[in-house]
Simulated scan of single mutants.
Amino acid sequence: MGNQLDAPNEGDLGRKILDSDFPFIKAGGFDTVRLPVRFSGHAGTTAPYQIDATFMARVQQVVSLATGAGLNVIIDMHHYDEINTSPTANTDRFVAMWRQIAQTFAGAPDTVWFELLNEPNINLTNSNLLTIYRPALAAIRETNLTRPVIIGGGNTSQVSSLATLQMPDDPYVVPTFHYYDPFNFTHQGATYITPTPPLGATFGSAADYAQLDANLQLVKNYIARTGRVPFVGEYGAIQYIATSDRAKYYGTVSNAFASIGIQSCAWSYTNTFNLRTDSGWITEITSVIATTIGK
């Protein structure tokens, strides 16, 4: 549900979430929604770092709508930019927010999962991530003993981050990575990238497939080494690309990871990597998305 609850304010970066979205998503054959939320934009900057009650109630409402439609939900802390640049200075706030989130959703169905932090980067690396993950996880376990908690590695959780990602000593922690290779194809024309990748890149060369094969091997190596099965928390291609080429990418990537037992969350619903328009699903894309269970 990108660019919605992770916007500075819901509606700033596109339309707001509608009550009808979740039955629509379920009817479209999807089982899970990942809900990026900018909790840090609605929380105090001094102790006790209280999250705004109205905003938290909106998150609760959205989660209830999704679970009521029969969907699994991943509540993801998104766009906490300050912790990437100053991890130590923001650790207490990070932990306090997660304690509040965990308390709020302690009674939620077990189909609701938490994701500690979207795409750690800059000064948050695999070498120091556990210094913020461990205390946040401990705060969650005060009220949610067995709820699955997702963690991603540094360098924006690229697949290469799995090689050195350290896991907390907790059997209910699930690793994730994001996949946007080749970046000059998936993000062409994205003006929020500096420099902006130029338009016109294509996907499907021998080099592209070799890169995908190499990345599949990285994931297989990770599973063999750790015994943990990660999932693709994001993958996709921007809307400026021809629909047929986008469909080729979504289909190729989701099928490739499904072939080694890896599930994936497609980015995104209605934003600039959209899977639907006002008219409905972009079926040329959604019809080729694969999962490990053959849907």
Results as ranks from 00 to 15, higher is better:
residue 122 I to G: 01
residue 201 A to V: 08
residue 100 Q to I: 13
residue 188 Q to Y: 00
residue 200 G to N: 09
residue 185 F to K: 00
residue 113 W to I: 05
residue 156 T to W: 15
residue 82 E to W: 12
residue 78 H to C: 01
residue 170 D to C: 03
residue 218 L to I: 15
residue 202 T to K: 15
residue 166 Q to N: 11
residue 182 P to I: 02
residue 167 M to T: 09
residue 207 A to H: 08
residue 189 G to S: 04
residue 78 H to T: 00
residue 77 M to Y: 11
residue 197 P to A: 08
residue 78 H to K: 02
residue 107 G to E: 04
residue 176 T to S: 15
residue 158 Q to Y: 09
residue 217 Q to C: 04
residue 188 Q to M: 00
residue 155 N to Q: 12
residue 78 H to Q: 01
residue 119 E to I: 04
residue 206 A to M: 13
residue 101 I to P: 02
residue 218 L to D: 08
residue 122 I to F: 14
residue 93 R to C: 06
residue 205 S to I: 08
residue 156 T to F: 14
residue 204 G to E: 10
residue 205 S to F: 08
residue 158 Q to G: 15
residue 143 T to G: 09
residue 80 Y to E: 10
residue 102 A to P: 12
residue 167 M to A: 12
residue 138 A to F: 00
residue 101 I to G: 05
residue 218 L to R: 14
residue 158 Q to L: 11
residue 93 R to Q: 12
residue 95 V to Q: 06
residue 165 L to Y: 10
residue 192 Y to V: 05
residue 122 I to Q: 14
residue 80 Y to S: 03
residue 96 A to Q: 09
residue 220 K to Q: 15
residue 175 P to Q: 10
residue 186 T to A: 09
residue 156 T to Q: 13
residue 154 G to Q: 04
residue 168 P to D: 04
residue 87 P to Q: 03
residue 139 A to Y: 07
residue 100 Q to M: 11
residue 175 P to R: 12
residue 190 A to R: 11
residue 149 V to E: 06
residue 152 G to M: 07
residue 196 T to R: 08
residue 185 F to D: 00
residue 88 T to G: 11
residue 212 L to K: 02
residue 110 D to V: 06
residue 130 L to I: 09
residue 178 H to F: 09
residue 82 E to F: 08
residue 117 L to Y: 07
residue 151 I to Q: 04
residue 149 V to K: 05
residue 199 L to G: 12
residue 188 Q to T: 02
residue 87 P to W: 08
residue 104 T to H: 05
residue 77 M to G: 06
residue 76 D to M: 03
residue 137 L to T: 02
residue 209 Y to N: 11
residue 137 L to S: 06
residue 89 A to M: 05
residue 215 N to V: 03
residue 164 T to N: 14
residue 149 V to G: 04
residue 86 S to V: 13
residue 140 I to K: 07
residue 135 P to Y: 01
residue 219 V to D: 13
residue 135 P to I: 00
residue 161 S to E: 06
residue 81 D to G: 15
residue 186 T to N: 03
residue 181 D to M: 11
residue 148 P to T: 11
residue 159 V to N: 01
residue 83 I to W: 10
residue 175 P to C: 08
residue 169 D to N: 14
residue 109 P to W: 09
residue 205 S to C: 10
residue 78 H to D: 00
residue 149 V to M: 03
residue 216 L to S: 01
residue 156 T to E: 14
residue 88 T to N: 10
residue 178 H to G: 05
residue 104 T to S: 13
residue 213 D to M: 04
residue 185 F to N: 01
residue 206 A to E: 14
residue 165 L to W: 07
residue 192 Y to D: 07
residue 189 G to F: 06
residue 90 N to K: 12
residue 155 N to V: 12
residue 96 A to K: 13
residue 128 N to C: 11
residue 105 F to W: 12
residue 132 I to V: 13
residue 162 L to G: 02
residue 157 S to N: 00
residue 87 P to N: 05
residue 83 I to L: 12
residue 176 T to N: 11
